Amino acid sequence: STGSVQFLIIGFAQGLTAGLSILTAQHFGASDFKAVRRSFAISIVVSLIVGIILTVLSLIFVDHILLLMQTPTDIIADARTFLQIMLGGMLAPIGFN
């Protein structure tokens, strides 16, 4: 009951970081090391900002998301707890990627 939500939010974050790494790799391939450093620094800032926004919004709206997905009432408390743990630690995979 939580897999789709988890995949949507964390998948978006991982896609963002993968896209940012492409820009850095292009600069590296062009041997423009000044641009590599700049791109890497911007990637860190963007990842932190988006990660914090996604984490906060996800945690605020976790109940609404579960209700929209018609999560059965007998598992909604466990689903909420699971998503709060998974999405609360979202900055870890974003930082890793």
Rank of each mutant, 00 (worst) to 15 (best):
79 A>M: 05
53 I>D: 03
47 S>M: 00
87 L>I: 01
30 A>Q: 10
77 A>M: 02
33 F>P: 04
60 I>S: 04
6 Q>P: 01
56 V>S: 13
17 T>K: 03
79 A>Q: 09
61 F>N: 08
67 L>M: 11
78 D>T: 08
48 L>N: 04
30 A>S: 13
16 L>C: 04
82 F>K: 10
53 I>L: 08
96 F>S: 07
90 M>D: 05
80 R>Q: 12
69 M>H: 14
77 A>H: 01
78 D>L: 02
77 A>D: 03
23 L>E: 11
10 I>G: 03
65 I>R: 01
1 S>Q: 06
71 T>Q: 03
40 F>T: 15
42 I>V: 14
15 G>N: 12
67 L>Q: 13
20 L>E: 04
9 I>L: 14
90 M>Y: 05
37 R>Q: 14
58 S>L: 07
57 L>E: 13
47 S>W: 02
87 L>F: 01
54 L>H: 13
55 T>W: 10
88 G>V: 08
24 T>Y: 02
58 S>P: 09
49 I>V: 10
45 V>G: 03
88 G>R: 12
47 S>I: 00
92 A>G: 07
10 I>C: 02
91 L>P: 04
67 L>S: 10
50 V>D: 10
38 R>I: 11
16 L>S: 07
6 Q>H: 07
47 S>Y: 00
43 S>C: 10
48 L>F: 06
76 I>W: 00
15 G>C: 06
35 A>R: 15
32 D>G: 14
94 I>R: 12
24 T>M: 07
34 K>I: 05
75 I>Y: 07
16 L>N: 04
73 T>P: 13
5 V>M: 04
48 L>I: 04
19 G>V: 00
85 I>T: 06
75 I>G: 10
14 Q>Y: 05
83 L>T: 12
21 S>L: 14
59 L>F: 04
66 L>C: 05
39 S>L: 08
28 F>H: 06
78 D>G: 09
91 L>V: 15
13 A>F: 01
1 S>H: 10
80 R>P: 02
4 S>Y: 02
53 I>K: 05
63 D>C: 08
1 S>E: 06
13 A>T: 01
42 I>G: 03
26 Q>T: 01
48 L>E: 03
61 F>G: 07
26 Q>H: 05
38 R>E: 12
85 I>C: 01
27 H>I: 02
25 A>H: 03
75 I>A: 04
97 N>D: 03
40 F>M: 15
70 Q>D: 11
1 S>A: 07
67 L>I: 12
95 G>V: 14
73 T>H: 15
69 M>I: 02
8 L>Q: 08
4 S>Q: 00
64 H>D: 06
70 Q>L: 12
18 A>E: 07
18 A>S: 13
42 I>R: 15
7 F>N: 08
83 L>P: 15
12 F>H: 00
96 F>T: 07
57 L>W: 08
61 F>H: 14
4 S>D: 08
93 P>V: 12
77 A>W: 01
20 L>N: 03
12 F>V: 00
45 V>R: 10
51 G>K: 03
51 G>F: 00
72 P>S: 12
59 L>V: 11
61 F>Y: 15
29 G>Y: 11
26 Q>R: 03
73 T>G: 08
81 T>M: 13
34 K>N: 11
19 G>S: 09
12 F>L: 00
84 Q>R: 15
59 L>Q: 12
27 H>W: 03
83 L>W: 09
19 G>P: 00
93 P>D: 11
86 M>K: 14
